[in-house]
Design a protein around this nucleic acid. Structure first.
Lengths: 258, 258
DNA sequence: CGCATGATTGAAGTATATCAATAGTGGTGG
DNA sequence: CCACCACTATTGATATACTTCAATCATGCG
């Protein structure tokens, strides 16, 4: 729905409603579009009002319409098994795209739940598909983001299949930390927007195990835990425990060098 | 490192070397292209000579150039962890695309190993990217296949995180069976092209566990096992054990109704 | 044919789940 | 503002599914 073309002035106060003013564009749209292309992309995107904690963005089985870019807040996606257990498939932070797995299906294969007050940009897929046919840069971006999602899930398979509980939790914390850094927040002190239960579910561990490992890590002075607040005290050792290579990712370098 | 490419040689003489003659087109290219489009797509694809068991199609870290469609045979992809353990991320059969996870990276994030004599179609990604800009149907197909890969990996995460050893093996057999049916082979009698070790690795289980469960399933008359040959004796009960919903997938229906 | 590799089976060990009880937290309404 | 309640988190004790170790058996490839 097009807001009038008279969008002359930035409305920094209520937040920028256009991609070209959005501080997250470099994350969810790391592409160089000319003014006219950017305007067209902008035209198909709807900014949501704040969504309340506990509500759903969409449910598994709902007809697939849009993918979403997180503007603020946190979202988790999960599938429900036959037996009614839930498996969390991902946590999504500002600048990340939710529902890529729904692309080319009739209905969402996962549910998306709001973990804390969240706003999103809704991107109707049909329109995005059209645009991506006309804008090569956008198409590459979309395909590239999907490729990244596949890689991340392969890493997750490895974690679930081969890593010990300690390695899993350490890996989880490191990845969170990196994601926070990437969007300009502190990489050493941050707040977990998900419960211990959700962490355990995501990592394939019982809640109790997660809890125990948090306190163990604390005793080893790897981290400081205070409820949902985490401080990373010794990143090197945390990497050591995680079994992850310390080598920075491209994304990390991009941020670090700036 | 590299066993040197027996691969990239045009052998136009052998068999149907063109997509429009390929019986697998309906699987790896379920799209309706006009003759001219088909020809252009065909033009960028190279058919490989037979690749020998044990050789590599590419190694983790090699510069990313092409994705591959399996024509005949089986390929496994795997990553190697820091500590040198290998995690298999997928098995690929005729009509399936290998290396989607490499898209939009500099280098392959996994290695691809030949499990039995295999031929592939090499699809240089740069060319595919260009073409997908010009052919909307092809673009949708590519994006759709990536979406499917994401969904399958999410199912895999669920399996690794929530399922028991028996459920995992049952699920594995069912999914294999369905894939064989989809490409016209028997869904009830088939040959495992991967070792027990590889099955265990893929499912996050020790070899011994896989072996034990095979014999257990056999005693329960769910399957008949004879080395690498598997016969599914009671699909209903196997579904029961797997914890998977019996509801057919779209793909299954497509084949079943024909 | 023979040897290396893969598969099976059994016995013992262990990481993590489960059960259970307590302590902390946060949101709500009086 | 506090008191309450439900929910979440922590900690300990016990149970168990699966791994690991070990030995034997089968397979297939040179």
């Amino acid at each position: 729905m097009a807001e009038k073309p008279q969008q002359v002035e930035k409305l920094r106060s209520l937040g920028s409603n256009h991609c070209n003013n959005c501080g997250l564009a470099a994350l969810c749209l790391p592409l160089s579009l000319n003014a006219s292309d950017m305007e067209r992309l902008d035209g198909i995107i709807e900014k949501s009002p704040p969504l309340k904690k506990g509500s759903h963005l969409f449910h598994q089985g709902d007809p697939f319409v849009s993918i979403y870019a997180v503007r603020a807040g946190t979202i988790k996606t999960y599938t429900v098994t036959n037996q009614g257990e839930e498996q969390i498939t991902g946590f999504y932070f500002p600048g990340e795209l939710v529902a890529l797995s729904a692309i080319a299906t009739e209905s969402y294969p996962v549910s998306a739940k709001i973990l804390e007050t969240t706003t999103v940009c809704e991107i109707p897929y049909e329109r995005l598909d059209e645009l991506s046919g006309q804008m090569p840069e956008l198409r590459r971006q979309l395909i590239g983001t999907m490729g990244k999602e596949i890689r991340e899930e392969q890493q997750m398979m490895l974690l679930l299949s081969k890593k010990t509980a300690e390695e899993r939790v350490a890996t989880f914390l490191i990845k969170l930390s990196n994601r926070f850094r990437k969007r300009g927040y502190s990489a050493s002190i941050f707040r977990l927007s998900m419960s211990r239960n959700e962490i355990g579910n995501y990592l394939g561990l019982a809640v109790e195990t997660v809890s125990r490992i948090f306190t163990r890590f604390q005793k080893q002075h790897l981290i400081r835990v205070e409820g949902k607040e985490i401080e990373v005290l010794n990143l090197d050792d945390l990497y050591q425990v995680s079994g992850e290579p310390r080598r920075r990712t491209d994304d990390e370098n991009a941020r670090v060098s700036s």
